[in-house]
Design a protein around this nucleic acid. Structure first.
Lengths: 242, 242
DNA sequence: CGTGAAATTGACTTCTCTCAACTAGCGTGG
DNA sequence: CCACGCTAGTTGAGAGAAGTCAATTTCACG
């Protein structure tokens, strides 16, 4: 199993975490936030490429990402992979499993990653008498469904270039929310992983990056991206145009 | 608004409904099932083509389908449509909205349909002191995520023929659970709606039906389908092959 | 500095869409 | 009851998008 870090009183807890306004305790006031300190008992370190949980595992917890990043993916019997999400710090992994008794997806670290563990039975116990926590679980479930539905729309109605543009914009926006540059970042995933997320081959992803660069929409060198023309990318993605 | 039918004591209630083992009260024992009679206060009739709720509406209830069928779809600003599901009797519509404060999708009747209304505040009130009901809501949320993820996989990794085969098999299985023939049924949706669900054009759907018929996998005449070769369809869908 | 994985690029194939013509079936009203 | 018109569905031809296979290139890492 992964390296577990028990949280001593002097460790960073939810109440003192920089990410608490984005992560598990989102929208919970400072009185109730301490309830999360009660629930989040430990952290786990997951080295790059290692699995946090497997599809089919009994669900024991949900995980707030403290640093690093995680991909979730579904695998069928034939070994075909559909990546269902790339999660960043402050985001929560394992909600789909929380609602079920077993995990629906695999969660794999894209880089060395640290996650805060909120055990399901602790969550349930606390939620029973803290409506804010209950509400939070519902919000997280709703987010999960929205994310999934967004992906359905991308795969169902967008063309490849629109999917990739929307993907870059989505990342940009989420990184901005974390205080990073919205226009310059490093992709933590390979072309193949992007392809498995967007329902495209790695070659198509690579060609599109090259084309976007040729059209001066982005600059890209390996995994370093710079978004040069956000308005044009937005228009291309077809998400907002009327 | 739609025709509302208040439920008098002698009306069919959850406790006496044929569908109760599939619908809202699934897996709830006969003691607790009467709690649903408390929650399900009325039924609504939705004529074919009419909308049960719109994307953006404040969520007030979840709906168990008593008869008929419903499609749910997302629409973006450009009017592009992604159908996210076709729901049959005994299935529950509006869970995504239940978790949110507003509806995420539109729900439209494919034929004259009757739904049982479980108001969210009633549900929450009852759930607070009936764990079985709470558990049930979680189960329904989980089902919703699974459904959505299944669609993601279909759109992301399956080819058109596999999508359509999987679609037919899925319908077949759900109809069988209702006691209908798994091999002979009537499609309640148009080719275009199937296309909008599977991320294909109506022409592609039509061509695939013709091809399946030519290959003696199915027989199809307008909306009447007969599945002639279930094993072959299963193999084609790629869902189970090793 | 060499090796291997990841990424790029090209040539070609295949799948799906688009546009268009045509057909079948259904409902309405004369 | 039939005729008309409308909608849904089918089919074909051609275009365009994305996939496949293969050859390089780049870069990270030992």
């Amino acid at each position: 199993m992964h390296k577990r870090i028990s949280l001593s009183p002097e460790s960073t807890r939810c109440s003192t975490c920089m990410l608490n306004s984005l992560c598990l305790p989102l929208g919970i006031n400072s009185n109730d936030i301490s309830k999360f300190d009660e629930v989040v008992s430990e952290r786990i370190r997951i080295p790059k490429g290692e699995t946090l949980f497997h599809q089919g595992d009994r669900s024991v917890a949900i995980y707030g990402i403290r640093s690093g990043s995680i991909k979730t993916q579904l695998e069928d019997a034939t070994g075909q992979v559909q990546v269902t999400g790339f999660l960043l710090p402050g985001e929560v992994v394992g909600i789909d499993g929380f609602l079920n008794t077993t995990q629906l997806s695999n969660a794999i670290a894209l880089e060395d990653t640290e996650v805060c563990v909120a055990r399901i039975d602790d969550m349930d116990r606390v939620a029973a008498h803290v409506p804010a926590v209950q509400h939070q679980l519902r919000r997280l479930s709703s987010e999960e469904i929205k994310r999934s539905q967004q992906l359905v729309v991308a795969l169902g109605v967008l063309r490849s270039e629109q999917r990739l543009a929307a993907f870059l914009l989505n990342l940009s926006q989420r990184l901005a929310a974390l205080g990073y540059s919205p226009s310059e970042f490093v992709l933590r995933m390979s072309r193949e992983e992007i392809g498995n997320y967007l329902g495209l081959t790695l070659e198509t992803v690579s060609r599109l990056f090259s084309r976007f660069a040729r059209e001066n929409l982005i600059r890209i060198h390996q995994r370093e991206v710079q978004l040069l023309d956000l308005p044009m990318l937005r228009q291309l993605s077809g998400v907002d145009c009327g």
